[in-house]
Amino acid sequence: MIADARLPEPPDREPDFQDDFTAPRLREDRWVDHYLPHWTSPERSRARYDIDGSGLRLRIDADQPDWREEDAPLRVSNLQTGVFSGPVGSRRGTHRHRPDGLVVRTNTPEGLLWAPTAGRVDVTVSASVDEGCMLAAWLVGTEHLSEDDSGEVCVFEIDAAAVGERVSRARCGVKAHSDARLTTDMTEVALPLDASKPHTWTAVWGPAGTIIGCDGVIVKRVPRSPGYPLFLMIDLFEIGPRSGTDAAYPKTAHIHRVRGWDAVSAPEGT
């Protein structure tokens, strides 16, 4: 934590993007319920989830397939605010996060549902405490304008094993990926809270840099930020071999609320 460093208040206007998951069905004008579907097949990328009265519950089910056979063991349920890829067989697409040659396998028409270049996002979540799981929120370069636009604002990554009743740990910062204009700057932070309960994570990014906070307190500052459109992704992963019997599933995490504002720059002095 950064002592006495408070996040700026959100803009005094309605969010440009918001969802509290009270509708009976997921809003298709807001979310794509697949994890990077262009790199794999629809049955592997499709999210498992339900809306249960406290928000949207992401699930990893006992019968859920690995996201890609090459990445096994790895299962994921994800919501993201858009999709982009080149044609089947190409290497163009959002979040080329592997250096060993991802190739488009599924045609995914371009959809920019929410992709701000600068802004603020508040994400209220309850992290998973299920063995092998990680809950994450990322803002990733869409790459629809250029392959160089691949940087990421990592709002949080919370491993289930790092969640405690009094202290929880999370990773946050900026990842360059293949954007030579950025430098990866990630930090693990210790927070005096139980991350399995609802807490609000915030990222504010723009020309002045990036700030990341939790429950109104800044936990990370980075002097740079990606300067191009970014999709928001919120993901529940199960990493490694399936653990436990079928009774251990589903493994879950909650998204309670998301609010986003376009073109809100991080304050000077970041």
Rank of each mutant, 00 (worst) to 15 (best):
141 G>N: 09
143 E>M: 14
143 E>W: 01
144 H>D: 14
144 H>E: 09
146 S>D: 06
146 S>Q: 03
147 E>D: 15
148 D>T: 11
149 D>Y: 13
150 S>T: 12
151 G>K: 09
153 V>I: 15
153 V>F: 13
156 F>I: 13
158 I>A: 06
163 V>F: 07
166 R>C: 00
166 R>I: 01
166 R>D: 04
168 S>W: 03
168 S>I: 07
168 S>N: 01
170 A>T: 13
170 A>P: 01
172 C>G: 02
173 G>T: 06
175 K>R: 15
176 A>S: 13
180 A>I: 06
180 A>C: 00
181 R>L: 08
182 L>A: 05
184 T>W: 09
185 D>V: 00
186 M>G: 06
186 M>C: 12
189 V>P: 02
189 V>T: 12
189 V>F: 09
191 L>Q: 03
192 P>C: 04
192 P>D: 03
198 P>W: 11
199 H>Y: 09
200 T>C: 14
201 W>M: 08
205 W>I: 04
206 G>P: 02
208 A>F: 07
209 G>M: 08
210 T>H: 02
213 G>P: 10
213 G>M: 14
215 D>S: 12
217 V>I: 12
218 I>P: 00
219 V>T: 11
220 K>W: 07
220 K>P: 07
223 P>S: 11
224 R>A: 14
224 R>E: 13
225 S>Q: 04
226 P>W: 13
229 P>E: 09
230 L>S: 00
232 L>P: 07
232 L>H: 08
232 L>T: 11
233 M>V: 08
234 I>H: 11
238 E>Q: 15
238 E>I: 01
238 E>M: 07
238 E>Y: 02
241 P>I: 10
243 S>I: 10
243 S>C: 04
244 G>P: 09
245 T>S: 10
246 D>N: 13
247 A>L: 04
248 A>W: 02
248 A>Q: 04
